[in-house]
Amino acid sequence: MTNAQILAACRSNWEYRGIDDASMRDMLDELSAHLEDAEAAGRTAQDVIGGDVRTFAAAWARARTPLPRRVLRATAVGLYYAGCVLLAPYLFRWTTQLDVTPGTMAFWLVLATVTVAWELRRGMIGLRRSWAVALGAALPAGLLAAWSAGDAPLFTLPLWAPPLLLLPGLPYAVADLRARRRSTA
């Protein structure tokens, strides 16, 4: 594994484990400097991270931020993305109500689950490939659910629901934006 691959794998792992942006930047800078120093001293990347980059990244994430804080952040950010995804059909169809069918529900649930699981397990294949893998699993799941359960809506979602989902993630989004500005200043 190259240094860039190790850093990408760690970044992905930490993002999905609910590490905040400022902490992640700090950890990546520290790891990057250590990898460079180790390389200059004739040591390999494996000497630094051990045999498994995911185990290394997970151990550091657990030590850096307590689980309740990471779960809270990951949930809020997940809901934020769900809100963004849900808002799009309202805008495209210019409607105030959205029928959620079994097919749509299965598609998005499988897409989200596979994306998170894949990024946590692999975390080094890049966003596009990761989405391709998730789509490869979500499309059949959605079609299967539509075929077996029909097109009848499970429930109707009002327009106020997606903005409500965005709310818990907003403080985190603002904090990340501020941290990014501070680091570039």
Binding site: M27, E30, L31, H34, A38, R43, Q46, D47, V48, I49, G50, F56, A59, W60, R62, A63, R64
Partner: peptide
Amino acid sequence: VSDGSIYP
């Protein structure tokens, strides 16, 4: 075992 184990 590995240098990086000091970071956690």
